[in-house]
Design a protein around this nucleic acid. Structure first.
Length: 581
DNA sequence: GCCGTTTTCGGCCCGACTGTTTTCAGTCG
């Protein structure tokens, strides 16, 4: 099941939207938004907390705590139900369209009766929208563009949502009678950033108990198809999950087949054909006699094709077959190679947890080093000041003295950094003498996303030339399914990063995954170094590193390409960059 | 509806951009 915190957070986020759409008090809506975020990022399980414990969560007071209790007891909150009854669910869905907020959504619903994206597209086509006050031709264009963006990710879900489902299904099925092996395959195993449907594979002599367990999972909402080799369900979250059960001796061939990608499989089957073989999900066969040659493990299948085992993130027909034949597959960076995290926040700005909790969580993860990089003053809403930053630094130094000595492996060293804002001209928040006090600086674009390509490129290059800027944070600033990346000459950026000793971030947040795999592949050719960061805003987000690692693997990165896989002494040398003195 | 080193009421993350207007509402980060 989804974590109770996530269910409650989703409910309050919806409530906040409904308050906004129905024109309720904006401050009240924000309170629910903030509460949703706090609850989602809270370390303790809300279903185990009492009324008093709930109120210790930031932004949760008596009223919200009572609503949580009501939800946990009855599965619903009457206040939310009342608002739901007033507004069709489709209206809220409209606010998912970028540039279409609650006010405009309510206007099209009230004036035109539009309550779905399809109806909205029709209304625009019929030019009914432009008669509304506050709407014009540009508004129509922006909305259509927003809808196109939304649809570009289709029905695909982000990797973390798919992973939650896959891991719980695998855990559950693994305990079913007769289950010999069980794993997820498909695009999720390849670490793609969005997932269409989750493919789960199991090995058993008798598929029936597994299929039954699958259809009876608590999160199964609908059984779409039910057979002896394949069953498809839709979960309560609306995600399609396929289970295929194969005989145990077909495991390797089936796993290879169902992991894909299609392009990779075409290449491997071609190789089989050229060798007088036939490759299917049941094994590698002699094409003439039909005799099965190998099938139990993926390694055997690849070996018989003259290939080393190819890590799933590489299986996209992007040169992995050729590299394998030459014996030149990269030794991919693994999550266990990461020694630290170089971009994280605390509640001094928009993080949810205080510095002390974040540091403790980082130490518990076994990080050898950990950088705190809260927002700098030019992101005005965060209200950062020189004084607050310096006070935080002092506290970081104290905690470093404490954590740096702890544990058998030398403890966790805490670094004090900052996430600077790259302004439209490429400048940053502070002059050199103030920047010199930081152990490292991440610099990111947070505004003026629509600059011309030339201006944006110049902006990035100037940031790279800054001797104190060590990492370009979430370089394209895209948000998957919501905002496209900025327009810039990325090759110029990659070259500048390589030249100046500036690392590019692989931001591990599932909404971002920025840089993406294609950009990493390109940047890598310039000899750029990368930082795989969580950009954590809560202790729970520290675990996002796994998705950044998957993306890095899809970009063929090895340990040596990633600065936070290096020992601290080597990292510190890199962070000195071109600084003088 | 939450919160408090400006405290139990009266604030609430601030500024910029866009497209619509003709002085501003809506959206976003």
């Amino acid at each position: 099941m989804a974590r109770a915190n996530d269910e409650v957070a989703a409910l309050f986020a919806e409530y906040a939207d409904l308050i906004s759409i129905t024109g309720g008090d904006a401050f009240r809506a924000r309170v629910y938004e903030k509460a949703a975020r706090s609850i989602g990022g809270h370390h303790a399980d809300v279903s185990r907390l009492d009324l008093k414990g709930l109120q210790e969560i930031p932004n949760v007071g008596r009223s919200i705590a009572e609503k949580i209790v009501e939800y946990l007891g009855t599965g619903r909150v009457s206040a939310v139900e009342e608002l739901r009854a007033r507004i069709p669910a489709g209206v809220r869905r409209l606010t998912a369209v970028p540039t279409l907020g609650p006010k405009k959504a309510m206007a099209v619903y009230q004036e035109l009766g539009v309550s779905s994206i399809e109806e909205l597209v029709d209304a625009i086509r019929d030019e009914r929208l432009r008669d509304l006050k506050g709407f014009g031709p540009r508004t129509e264009q922006n909305i259509l563009h927003g809808i196109a963006l939304l649809r570009s990710s289709g029905d695909r879900v982000l990797i973390d949502a798919a992973m939650d489902v896959a891991e719980s299904v695998v855990a559950r099925l693994s305990t079913a009678a007769g289950c010999r092996r069980c794993a997820y395959a498909g695009s999720l195993r390849r670490g793609r950033e969005t997932i269409g449907d989750v493919d789960v594979l199991a090995a058993a002599d008798d598929s029936e108990p597994l299929m039954r367990a699958f259809t009876e999972l608590p999160r199964t909402r609908e059984v779409v198809a039910h057979g002896t080799t394949r069953t498809s369900i839709r979960t309560t979250e609306g995600l399609a999950v396929d289970l295929r059960v194969v005989p145990p001796d077909s495991w390797g061939a089936a796993l290879q087949y169902f992991t894909g990608s299609k392009a990779h499989n075409i290449r491997t089957r071609e190789r089989a054909v050229h060798q007088g073989l036939k490759l299917s999900e049941y094994g590698l066969f002699d094409a003439e006699t039909g005799e099965r040659i190998v099938s139990e493990t993926e390694e055997e299948v690849y070996a018989r094709l003259g290939l080393p085992w190819i890590p799933p993130p590489l299986r996209e027909d992007r040169g992995e077959i050729e590299a394998g034949l030459r014996g030149e597959l990269p030794e991919l960076v693994r999550e266990s190679d990461l020694r630290g995290d170089l971009h994280t926040h605390t509640d001094l700005t928009d993080g949810l947890a205080p510095l002390e909790q974040m540091a403790a969580a980082a130490a518990a993860r076994g990080h050898a080093y950990y950088a705190i990089t809260d927002h700098a003053p030019n992101l005005f809403m965060q209200r950062m000041t020189d004084e607050r930053m310096l006070a935080q630094r002092e506290r970081v130094r104290e905690l470093d003295a404490e954590y740096g000595r702890r544990g058998a492996r030398g403890g966790t060293r805490l670094l004090h950094g900052v996430e600077l804002n790259i302004d439209p001209d490429g400048g940053v928040d502070w002059p050199d003498d103030f920047l010199a006090g930081f152990d490292l600086c991440v610099a990111s674009v947070h505004s003026h996303f629509n600059q011309s390509r030339d201006a944006m490129t110049r902006r990035f290059l100037r940031a790279c030339e800054n001797p104190y800027v060590n990492i370009i944070g979430h370089p394209t600033t895209r948000v998957i399914g919501k905002r496209p990346g900025v327009d810039a000459d990325l090759d110029a950026l990659f070259a500048a990063c390589a030249r100046t000793g500036t690392a590019l971030e692989i931001n591990s947040h599932p909404d971002r995954l920025d840089l993406d795999d294609e950009h990493i592949l390109r940047a890598r050719r310039y000899g750029v170094k990368f930082a795989i960061d969580s950009d954590a805003h809560s202790t729970l987000h520290l675990a996002y590193l796994r998705y950044g690692v998957a993306t890095a693997q899809r970009g063929w990165l090895a340990k040596d390409d990633v600065i936070n896989a290096w020992p601290l002494t080597r990292l510190r040398r890199f962070l000195r960059k071109g600084r003088t003195g």
